[in-house]
């Protein structure tokens, strides 16, 4: 991808961040309210999709192949681990062994911890598979 396009995306992201800070500081957007969070999330998703599209189009075919491999093998392996954890929790009904951030043990904290755990495992699996693909082809 051309350096200019990367710079444009970075500039837009920084401008969007500054705009969000400005709106929040003026009280126009409640960062903790349902609508405020929803609006920020919609903007984030749109920006992520747009930048991902530009980034993907800039990749050559080998780089794309590495990501497809990582998506399938890394993502699937991570889901396998998630499945094992799920079976463990369902069978034992014991979530006290799970590490909880800040000691919160309410339902929302468990949902957040579960979602973050899945995301973390997916990222680790994806990263390892991606690295393995390139290391094998050095």
């Amino acid at each position: 991808m051309a350096a200019g396009r990367r710079g444009l995306i970075l500039s837009l992201a920084i401008m969007a961040g500054l705009m969000a800070v400005l709106l929040a500081s003026r009280g126009w957007v409640q960062a903790s309210g349902l609508w405020g969070v929803g609006m920020v999330e919609v903007v984030m998703v749109a920006a992520l999709l747009a930048s991902s599209w530009v980034w993907w189009r800039g990749l050559d075919e080998a780089a794309r192949e590495a990501h497809k491999f990582a998506w399938w093998w890394g993502g699937s392996a991570a889901l396998l681990v998630v499945g094992l954890l799920l079976i463990f929790v369902v069978k034992t009904r014991d979530v006290s062994r799970l590490p909880m951030p800040d000691g919160h043990t309410d339902a929302a904290a468990y949902v957040v911890a579960g979602a973050l755990g899945v995301m973390l495992l997916e990222v680790v699996g994806y990263g390892l598979a991606w690295l393995g693909w390139w290391m094998h082809r050095r």
Binding site: D60, E61, A62, R137
Partner: peptide, 22 residues
């Protein structure tokens, strides 16, 4: 070829087969 140097290396060493267009 408008690809990365890593891709050229992978093709040269026979560890990656290019697509038909490439």
């Amino acid at each position: 070829l408008e690809v990365s140097r890593q891709s050229v290396n992978a093709i040269e060493t026979g560890k990656y087969d290019p697509s038909l267009p490439l």
